[in-house]
Amino acid sequence: MTFEIPKVSYSGKIKEIPLGRGENIITVGGESCYPFHLFEGAIPHPPKIAMEVYDKEPEDWPDTALEPFADVAGDPVAWARKCVDTYGAEMIALQLASTDPNAEDTPADEAAAITKKVSDAVDVPLIVFGTSNTDKDTEVLKAVCETCEGKNLIIGPLGEGNYRAIGATAIGYKHTVMASTPIDINLAKQLNILLGNLNVPDDKIIIDPTTGALGYGLEYCYSVIERIRTAALIQEDERLQFPIIANFAKEVWKTKEVKLSEPEAPLLGDQKKRGVLMEAMTAQCVLLAGADILVMRHPEAINLVKESIQDLMIKGEG
């Protein structure tokens, strides 16, 4: 019996964005079909995983997450090196968490100096996150841009309140920016239009649509990512044709369920495996929705997701 495979015709394509510099450039984006829909389109660059590194020793992580990094947790340079050397990280995502005025309020110049050291220590593309505090991020990320001139860092989040100041500086020092909006396709589009008006080049923009954890609002993020992809590929919405980054590890590892031990919650099984799967499944969902870069923490979760990406990039067998 013959039947016709109902195919979708894609009129749009995601822009290809080179991250990092020199020989170590990694390109993301370029898809001309829905995620892993290899039977009807091309995915020239499979999704990539960036491993998290924190600027100061984390205080509130469960041991299960800290354990792989216990020997390097207070030293972001050693931490980043370990991610690359031991765990084969494709990219590093430096979380400047201590710059939060509600936390240690690390000053901008200090944060920039840490970033510089990390960027000198590793060759892979470096993503740098502030803390979503509009004013402080402006200070911090501007300083980071200056200090790391020419390294093509990926910096963010740039929001409605600070995209101008940070965007202009990023252009000047040739970095890529993450346009961040709170789970809303229209706001995401609007911010990309504004960045365009500011003359941020099209190959320097990544969309950060905000990602929650499994069980904690993931569905909203999942659908926003799917909608952004549909608009980009089918409705040719040019200002949404950018790769998408999902920054969820910090959300997953602060949930109650990854922190409960097995004796406290026997029905939730092994604490470490549970945390690893909570993170890996959050990744799996956003991958299937359309994320291009996943910001992840636990090496075992990362391995699971890498395998999953490999499996889903094999066409039509079995």
Partner: peptide, 20 residues
């Protein structure tokens, strides 16, 4: 059926099947 895997799976299913 182990808690550490079925619990996250059930969460995923709850998330995906919630009325948008």
């Amino acid at each position: 059926i182990e808690g550490h895997s079925i619990f996250p799976l059930l969460l995923a299913s709850m998330n995906i099947f919630t009325d948008p």
